[in-house]
Every structure is written in structure tokens, then in C-alpha cells.
């Protein structure tokens, strides 16, 4: 680091300016708030995108299975909608994370990768368990209905809750646990309604989470 013209200016300003303690307190609070917002990978916008995605994905599946007697599960074009919604959510999440963590290095990077690995393993395990249920002769109402509608959100929500708890992110922890609760309770509504109940319930949780995030940012 070499001496510069700016260095002289900075030193002069430093000596000449009287920095009022109240102004310092305001500056400290504002800088903290701005930095927290800049580094945040769980933005209100992302929560809203996820809310729309979960409603669109689960709603599309419910639309495709409504009126099935007996229940056979989702078929055909609905999978295109689900894949598009999942892809959109992943891309949006990756974009926000990349922007928030640009230039940041250190232990938190490893922690984030570990969380992603936990999610991948959890979802693969959920999928494998679904195959195991099918091979064990469990009916379509469970294998293609109640289980895939609720289990991924129960497992994913619990994993997310653990990650939030480790970071003392209490608002995120509350939202993750609410998603677990919605998914578990929706399972009682049966193989058709479970898709609608889970989609609407999780959408409401995520919208509430986004609103709380915004309120905290402005507080």
C-alpha cells in the first residue's frame, strides 16, 4: 500500500472533522443494516419467488389429479410445469447467492456448500424411499400422492431449520418450521387435496416470511 493524494485528503478530513457521537451511532446502525442486506442470501424477493413457485408447482399437480377415482397420480404435461418451476427457483436462488457472496471468502463458504450437500442427500434419500414404497407394494395414493407432496418439504424444511438455527436466523427458523408443520398437517387431507393444501399453505408461509423480512429491513 503506497501513499496517495487521497491519503492526504483522508488524513486532513480526519483531523478537521468533528464526528458527533449521535451521527456515529446513526452511521453505525445504517452501515450494519445496509451490509446485512447486501450479504443476505435469503432476500424478500427470493421468498416471494419461492411462494409463487410452490403455489404454481403444487397447484398444477393438484389441477392434474383433481377428480381422479381411483387416484393414479400426476401424469404428462404437469411434469414440464414442475421442472420449469424447480429450475426457475434454483436459478433465482443461485443468482441471489452469487450476488450476495461476491468477494466473500472464508469458513461460511464451506458451511454453505455443506448445507447444499445436506439438501442433495436429503432429496435423493426421499426419492429412494419413494421407490422403496412402490417396490413394497404401497398404493398409489401414498407413493404418488401423500408422500411426494409432503415428505420433501418435511425433510427439506427440517434441514433448513437446522441451518437457520445454527446461524441464529430466528425468522428463517420460524418459517422453515412452519413449512414442516404445513406439509405434515396437509398429509391428513388425502392424496388429492394434499397438493392444494401444501401449495397454498407453504405459499402463505413464504409470503408472510417475505413481509416479515421487509419489515425487519425497514425497522
Amino acid at each position: 500500500m503506497s501513499g496517495t493524494h487521497e491519503e492526504d485528503l483522508a488524513s486532513t478530513a480526519e483531523v478537521g472533522e468533528a464526528f458527533d457521537p449521535r451521527a456515529a451511532a446513526t452511521l453505525l446502525a445504517r452501515t450494519r443494516r445496509q451490509a446485512l442486506r447486501e450479504f443476505d442470501i435469503h432476500t424478500p424477493l427470493l421468498s416471494l419467488i419461492r411462494a409463487v413457485a410452490v403455489l404454481a408447482g403444487y397447484g398444477a399437480i393438484w389441477w392434474s389429479v383433481r377428480g381422479q377415482h381411483p387416484y393414479t397420480g400426476p401424469h404428462g404435461p404437469v411434469f414440464v410445469v414442475v421442472v420449469a418451476v424447480v429450475a426457475l427457483t434454483i436459478v433465482a436462488g443461485a443468482q441471489v447467492t452469487r450476488r450476495a457472496t461476491a468477494g466473500v471468502s472464508g469458513p461460511s463458504l464451506l458451511q454453505r456448500r455443506a448445507v447444499v450437500a445436506v439438501f442433495v442427500v436429503a432429496y435423493v434419500a426421499v426419492l429412494l424411499f419413494m421407490v422403496a414404497l412402490y417396490r413394497a407394494g404401497v398404493g398409489a395414493a401414498i407413493v404418488y400422492g401423500v408422500y411426494p407432496a409432503s415428505a420433501p418439504l418435511i425433510v427439506g424444511g427440517a434441514a433448513l431449520a437446522g441451518a437457520f438455527a445454527a446461524q441464529e436466523g430466528w425468522l428463517g427458523l420460524g418459517a422453515a418450521l412452519a413449512i414442516v408443520a404445513v406439509a405434515a398437517l396437509s398429509a391428513f387431507t388425502g392424496p388429492i387435496t394434499v397438493w392444494l393444501a401444501t401449495g397454498v399453505g407453504c405459499c402463505l408461509v413464504l409470503v408472510g416470511y417475505a413481509a416479515a423480512q421487509l419489515w425487519l429491513q425497514k425497522a
Binding site: L27, L28, R32, G103, V104, S105, G106, P107, S108
Partner: peptide
């Protein structure tokens, strides 16, 4: 103050370019 406050919002051990 702004530099220190900004770096303090990162988890301990993390660095910023």
C-alpha cells in the same frame, strides 16, 4: 467506522475483497 461495521456483519473468519 463503515469499514469495520461492514466487515463485522460477515461471519467470524470471513474476508471481503
Amino acid at each position: 467506522l463503515r469499514i469495520v461495521a461492514t466487515l463485522a456483519t460477515l461471519p467470524p473468519g470471513d474476508a471481503l475483497t
